[in-house]
Design a binder for these strands. Structure first.
Lengths: 232, 232
DNA sequence: TCTAGTCACGAACACTGTTCTAATGACGAG
DNA sequence: CTCGTCATTAGAACAGTGTTCGTGACTAGA
């Protein structure tokens, strides 16, 4: 008998006759949950099969009975992420804000788990939850009177932009990791100002505008641009 | 004396008195060139320090005398990529097509080296060539009468979209690698049609529109959307 | 000719995803 | 109650990755 099993039996003396199983079984849900916790706490780079396994108190091989690849784990994560986004029921009068609302919800989810948008961009989302998101946005846009082809392309562009924006923001915050520290707003402006004015006249002149957008102003601006020209 | 050195001396007998050095020295330019060749031939996943080193006929440690990180190599690559994009001299009458032209040039460069846009998205581009690109686009937009703040944000959005679009296209073509093969246009439509119509009515109804955009129609459409609302 | 210094490179470390293997556990059949 | 089947688990290992250490060789200067 293995020593840990022996210790487990001793520990089980206080809990009555084998009520709870010693180890809760590994399920896909538990894997996804610990993966989410890992990404939320330490960022997407910390999402490793080994980290997930050791957090679950086991070895990496045990995960592959429930998940085929790490790519599939990524798909499960962004699927669960998309499932948390709930598009509103289409209201033709407010279709623009409704689309922006969906994008904001998705962006907030991406921001909650730093760097996870890399997984969203790196894998063609095949989960049904992602399709459900597309369905919701399509319903809103069609109700707003947008032509189907334009609506479909606009959805693709918006989702792509949300992912790219979140990815850029995440690695701008997380500061590249090793040596490059986070450049504050003023430092960026100063760097642009340092450039030779004969070669980069406009960048030097408009350094503040280039570095602006602390909150989500840039995000809202781009979405307005994307949605503004849909119904001419 | 080492045997290889001995053999090298023997081989040097035919070439006269030490005209060419036995091995061309490793330079940053040679590293970047072989890296470009590797990515062009086999995609960004094949870009490995070891692959670059062995292609150069040496070990991986030799690279780190000229390049600090792989991240720095990535920066050099996208810097060289941006340097190949030449914005036109601003023409106020044609500012929209001029911006589209810059984006198309960048897109073609991304497409030439499949997957390299991942490096562009994953690292905040700190090279001067990227700033030169921003300068060129800013000049065009300002000449077109776009307000500086809107111009700056539009440039950011456009560059972000070009990178995301190229990344998505590259891994849609390269087919995920292992088991997932490339889904043709008709297969995507059929998959959408397979969905339960009560849950996904709009997706089922407009499957062709969602799967459309074989060439760069989607790309052009999104850029028109982004640039259309800039001067209201 | 001797020395100094830069450059190159083999080996190694700490990781990663993934698979092979054996063994452990629970479950139903006899 | 015992036994056999079978899915689940986990240890070890393989082929990779980026990166660093220390030694070696070669070039250039005195």
């Amino acid at each position: 008998m293995a020593p840990d099993r022996w210790a487990a039996q001793i520990a089980a003396l206080d809990e009555g006759p084998r009520r709870a199983p010693r180890k809760p079984p590994i399920t896909v849900e538990r894997i996804v949950d610990t993966a989410f916790g890992l990404v939320e706490a330490e960022g997407y780079d910390a999402l490793t099969m080994r980290r997930v396994a050791t957090t679950l108190g086991t070895g990496p091989a045990s995960l592959y009975a429930h998940v085929r690849d790490k790519a599939e784990l990524d798909d499960l994560l962004i699927g669960a992420l998309c499932a948390r986004v709930t598009p509103q029921a289409p209201d033709p009068a407010r279709w623009r804000e409704q689309v922006v609302d969906v994008c904001r919800q998705l962006r907030d989810q991406y921001f909650r788990y730093p760097g996870i948008s890399r997984a969203a961009l790196a894998t063609a989302p095949e989960s049904l939850d992602a399709v459900r998101l597309t369905e919701g946005m399509l319903a809103i846009l069609l109700a707003g009177g947008v032509a189907p082809q334009r609506a479909a392309w606009a959805i693709d562009a918006a989702l792509l932009y949300v992912g790219a924006y979140s990815l850029e923001a995440s690695l701008r915050q997380h500061a590249g990791g090793t040596d490059r520290r986070r450049l504050g707003h003023d430092e960026i402006v100063e760097r642009f100002r340092m450039l030779p004015a004969d070669r980069f006249p406009h960048v030097v002149a408009h350094a503040p505008e280039l570095a602006a957008g602390d909150g989500h102003e840039r995000f809202d601006f781009t979405l307005e641009l994307l949605l503004g020209g849909l119904t001419p």
